[in-house]
Simulated scan of single mutants.
Amino acid sequence: MRRTLFGAFAVMLAAGASHAADVAQPAMDPVLMSAPEVTVQEAATGWYLRGDAGYAFKDMKGAKFYQGGSSASTTDFSSAHLKDSFLLGAGVGYQINSALRTDLTFDYLSRSKFEGSTHGSGAAFGACVGNCTSSDISHMRAYSLLANAYVDLGTFGYVTPYVGGGLGGTYVKWDKLKNTSCADNGSGCDSTVEHGGKGSWRFTYALMAGATVDVTCNLKADIGYRYRHVEGGDMFGFASNGGPGSDKGFDVHEARVGARYLFGGCPQASVTYDEPQPPLVYK
């Protein structure tokens, strides 16, 4: 009986020791692999060149001239219309950050025809007396130099809308003005009188809105609208007891397309991997 009890007790001790050894065995920790860390650089900054072309719709504010003779007064043209024309532009700028850029632009407005007229005593001269109407023909071209700033409103896919403004000057060059006055009753016309054209620099401001489209990371297409206001100035000189004359300025509404090339390379995304820790080895 005693042998049987001692044998059972020995078996219980062996089983308990075996279970204790199993509990004390440390658990294997899983090997933790760190996810790669992706860092995207800021939008590219730096110098850029731009080129633009477009069509300009002009709204002339009027014109006036000094009428000699007994009236000796300034008279407004009864009508003053400036036809539309094409434009070409170029510039250099700097992309300050992803939201702000500035540039200096030079634009050329191609030759545009002026058609005006006067009525009554303002048109009367020489053979034309009483009720007369004049036909006044000239041409104008202009060169603008503007300093501009733009705010980019965020990029949506490949498209970045923007707004902007500019200040500067426009050199307006008028060709000679050809003036022909005819009696309204058809009795006759004066000989055509030519007034020498004038040129002058005028204060100009501009407002812009549009969008750029990423063609590549360096090259961007630009589609936009620009409003430009050009102050009035000298238009033509004195001739045959009439003149000089001046225009009252004009607004220009421009539909533009162009491109910008940004120097300095393309932004690249960098990927960093943490070193994996070696697995724990248990012996």
Results as ranks from 00 to 15, higher is better:
Pro276Tyr: 14
Gly54Met: 02
His81Tyr: 12
Phe203His: 02
Ser270Gln: 13
Thr192Trp: 04
Gly166Ser: 06
Asn185Asp: 15
Gly120Met: 01
Gly46Trp: 09
Lys248Ser: 12
Leu32Gly: 00
Gly164Thr: 07
Gly237Trp: 07
Arg260Thr: 10
Ala10Ser: 11
Tyr94Trp: 09
Gly7Ile: 03
Gln277Glu: 12
Leu262Gly: 02
Arg101Asn: 08
Lys198Met: 05
Phe238Leu: 09
Thr74Ile: 10
Lys283His: 11
Tyr171Arg: 13
Ala127Gln: 08
Tyr143Phe: 15
Ser73Cys: 00
Thr75Ser: 04
Tyr94Pro: 01
Ala239Cys: 02
Pro279Cys: 06
Gly68Asn: 05
Ser187Arg: 08
Val151Arg: 04
Thr45Gly: 05
Arg111Gly: 13
Pro276Lys: 12
Leu177Phe: 01
Ala183Tyr: 01
Tyr171Ala: 00
Gly199Lys: 11
Pro30Asn: 09
Phe9Ala: 15
Pro244Ile: 05
Ala21Asp: 14
Val40Asn: 08
Thr45Met: 01
Gly54Ser: 07
Ser191Gln: 10
Ser18Trp: 05
Gln268Thr: 15
Gly245Glu: 02
Arg111Ser: 15
Ala56Gly: 09
Ala206Ser: 15
Gly196Tyr: 06
Ala24Lys: 13
Phe106Thr: 08
Arg226Trp: 01
Gly186Pro: 07
Gly16Gln: 14
Cys266Trp: 11
Ala90Ser: 10
Lys178Thr: 07
Gly243Cys: 05
Met140Arg: 02
Pro36Gln: 05
Asp107Tyr: 01
Cys132Ser: 06
Gly168Ala: 04
Glu37Gln: 13
Gln41His: 11
Ala123Gln: 03
Phe238Val: 11
Asn185Leu: 11
Ala259Met: 12
Gln67Asn: 14
Asp22Asn: 10
Ser135Phe: 03
Thr192Phe: 01
Gly232Leu: 05
Lys61Gly: 07
Val172Ala: 12
Thr133Met: 07
Asp152Ala: 08
Phe236Ser: 02
Gly197Glu: 02
Asp103Ile: 03
Tyr66Lys: 11
Val31Gly: 00
Ala123Met: 04
Cys182Asp: 04
Gly46Leu: 03
Asn218Ala: 06
Ser71Met: 10
Tyr225Met: 08
Cys128Trp: 05
Gly130Ala: 07
Ala142Ile: 03
Pro244Gln: 05
Leu87Lys: 06
Phe9Pro: 00
Ser246His: 12
Gly120Ala: 09
Gly126Leu: 13
Cys132Ile: 03
Trp174Ile: 00
Val129Phe: 09
Ala14Gly: 06
Leu82Ile: 14
